[in-house]
Structures are given as C-alpha cells and as structure tokens.
Design a protein around this nucleic acid. Sequence first.
DNA 1: GTGAATCATTCGAGCCGTGAACGATATGAG
DNA 2: CTCATATCGTTCACGGCTCGAATGATTCAC
Lengths: 148, 148
Amino acid sequence: MSDVKGSAALRATLVFNLGTLGALAADRFAARVEELGLKPKHAGLLAALDAGSAASQQELAARLGVAPSLIVSLADQLQALGAVERLRDPDDRRRQVLTLTPEGRRLLSRCAEAAEAADAELAAGLDPDRRAALAEGLRALGARHVPH
Amino acid sequence: MSDVKGSAALRATLVFNLGTLGALAADRFAARVEELGLKPKHAGLLAALDAGSAASQQELAARLGVAPSLIVSLADQLQALGAVERLRDPDDRRRQVLTLTPEGRRLLSRCAEAAEAADAELAAGLDPDRRAALAEGLRALGARHVPH
DNA sequence: GTGAATCATTCGAGCCGTGAACGATATGAG
DNA sequence: CTCATATCGTTCACGGCTCGAATGATTCAC
C-alpha cells in the first residue's frame, strides 16, 4: 500500500493515506529495531508476552495472528538472545510456556524507545493540536477494528 | 507492523497505530481490488499513469519506488488486460512509453470505488468530526513525508 | 566511429510466512 | 486399562513477492 500514488481520486482516500503512512511508519520502526538485532515480529512477541502473563505458543500465535510454526522460530531466536525462557507446562507437557527474562524486558523497553523515537521523527514539525487529533482518530479507529 | 500487540508502552505509540491500521487498510483495499483481478501495485501503476502523462517504465519505477523489473511484469499483466498500451518512444527507441487505454481508465475508476468502499467500511460508526480530524492529520503527515 | 551509458527484459536468488507432515503427550469412550 | 482421537510444538518444503545482476538493443559523448 506504499503502492498507489497519484490519481486524485485515490489520493483523497482514507485507506490510501493510512496504507502509505502505515508502511512508512512500519519501515521506520523496523529500521530502528533492527539495530537491536530484532525484527518487528520479535518486538510483537515480546510485547504480547509482556501484556498477558505466560502463554503457550499456540495462544501467542492466535494473539499475533500468525501461524504457530512462525512462533517457533521467533521464540528460537529470542531464546538465543536470552530474552525468553521456554518451560514445559507441568500440567500439560505438550505445551511450551514462554516467559520474559529480565533481558527480554530490557529489550522490550528498548523497542518502546525505538517506537517513540520513530514517532518523534514522524511527527516532527506537526503542530501539537493536529498531532493530538491524529492520535485520537487512530485510537478511535483502532478501538473499532483491532481485537481487544 | 500488524505485529506489535499488547504492551501499553508500544500500543500508545503513533507508529504502532499507524502501522497496525495501515496494514488493515491495505488488506481491505487489496481484497476489494482482487475482485477486479488486480493487486494493489497494479492500481498503483494505473494511478501513476493517470497522474503524470505518459511515462517510461524507468520513470514509473522511480515514482512507485520499486525495481524497474517489477514494472515490466506489472505492465505485462495490465497489457494482457487491455488496460495499458506500450509504445516505443520514437525519439528514443529504448524507452517504452506506457499509456492508459479507456479500459485502463475504467479499471482505475473501479479501483477508486474500491478505495471509497473500503473507507466507508473502515470509518463506519466513527463520528464525522473525528473522521475529518483523522483525514486532516493524515494529510498533514503525508505532506511532510510522502514525495510530491 | 568507438566506447560508455541507458533502457527494457529475463532470470536466478532471498526473504517471509504458510500449511502439511510427524512425534510426543493428553483426553475420552468403552 | 486400552485404544482411538485430538492437541501441541517442531520441521520442512513450498509459494508469493521483490530485488539485483546479466543481456541485448539503442543512444550519447567525444
């Protein structure tokens, strides 16, 4: 959606602007997070772990809206970084329970910093009223469309 | 960027909301445009052709921010649909000049309809003031970051 | 006229995510 | 208790998407 350019009729559209700027924002965030050795999905997984308490990989896959097999490799990499621990659930030894380590929490907070830095860069030179209105509009839209 | 979920610090962020909703908007648009047998990039190419006047594939690649080789296959497909014409530029026979056919213009306007329909779906139940503020905020942001 | 630059095109490669297997474990019916 | 069935995590092969290098045609600079 960084796609559609030109053509007044498309440019005037909400989906067009949202798509374009969304891709831009995602790229900026990805660039910053890459310096931590992470992809956005890694940050997503860390955040999901921080939000709910310890969860199985299936639950996490559902939360993030990705295939369970993807969680496996994300968790592998985060585990290699010492950011998460895998524990067999003693009540159901099929389940792998993932938990954040202190290092994981540190990484997550650096991801949050990255997001805030990207925010500042994106909103630079935007007058505060407009920025607040934008944030509020996005929040309202998200409330209607993003699960939870 | 439909990634990062949970974790208050990230959720509060502009990039997070923009990224999430941007991906959502892009998906909705893609779904509608697919019924026309097109991908979003095809719509992007049509729109770019409509915006500037006849352009070489190199120029189009630059405008869309993609590799020239991608333009080739997009143009191939659009040509097969009868939406664009390829003409050798008589002043420089290396260049292929792409132009919209009437069918191309028809398709483009249906893409615009798809975008508007996706808009309506997205903004349903959002009060008009908020929606206007959102559109204005996005416009201002785009003006600062999207070329041209 | 000759060599360097530019265009469109083809083709191979890389990244990313999915879905179909598979083994281990758990659950329920008889 | 036992066997059939379902669920979890894991591996692996594949498809979609995009890029970059190589190629051939054409133009440009000198």
